[in-house]
Design a binder for these strands. Structure first.
Length: 195
DNA sequence: TAGGTGATCTTG
DNA sequence: AAGATCACCTAT
């Protein structure tokens, strides 16, 4: 079952939490892959120094933030990694959720191939760079709809409150105060989590 | 723990 | 307009 209209909610932090347990699906180059979302982070345009579109910042890179929720925001980090985010909220409200890890469900052979690995290990799809690579997501997918044929979400598992961990976000020390916000969520019962 | 890698944005 | 800055990963 496809999740629709989930992305236009105003509370990006709540969305990031609800995304834990949902199924992320891709069909890229004919290869169908599915994974359960196990780790997310919320980024809020309005008042979050860690968000690329913080404080109304508008550049070529941040354009997707100002579109209606429900599209992909993919960008290159450290010259190597394509990081996959879900744009949320209404048009002109610049929020996003970074998907940091998934647990593979289907199409593991394609993930292994893309990652050039022989056998399944926890880092096949843990960590935002690894996840994107495993699922076949790259810069070409920036801005595409998440209800379309290449990338979409399905309802997946209902995860109980007690099984969701909360922490500060990773790798954003430069954002000072905002670096402390408890906006990272993860599924406690999985090994597929970034380190 | 160090270094690779390149688009983005500029005393982070 | 060049160089600092990264929402990271892998391997020593």
């Amino acid at each position: 079952m496809v999740v629709l209209d989930f992305y236009k909610d105003e509370n990006v932090v709540a969305i990031a939490k609800q995304l834990i347990g949902k199924t992320l699906c891709t069909k890229i180059n004919g290869q169908l892959c599915k994974g359960m979302i196990t780790e997310t982070e919320a980024y809020r345009g309005y008042d979050d120094a860690a968000c690329h579109a913080n404080n109304g910042k508008r550049t070529a890179r941040t354009e997707p933030f100002y579109r209606e929720g429900g599209i992909a925001y993919v960008y290159l980090c450290y010259g190597i990694h394509c990081l996959f985010n879900i744009i949320t909220n209404k048009k002109n409200k610049a929020d996003a959720v970074l998907i940091r890890s998934i647990a593979p469900l289907e199409g593991v052979e394609h993930m292994l191939g893309r990652r050039a690995k022989q056998k399944l290990s926890t880092n096949i799809s843990a960590g935002p760079g690894n996840l994107s690579k495993a699922m076949g997501i790259d810069m070409l997918h920036n801005g595409i709809s998440l209800t379309g044929p290449e990338i979409w979400l399905e309802t997946g598992l209902e995860i109980g409150e007690e099984d969701i961990g909360i922490s500060a976000r990773i790798g954003i020390d430069y954002a000072k105060e905002a670096a402390k916000y408890p906006w990272r969520f993860y599924y406690k019962k999985t090994r597929f989590i970034s380190k």
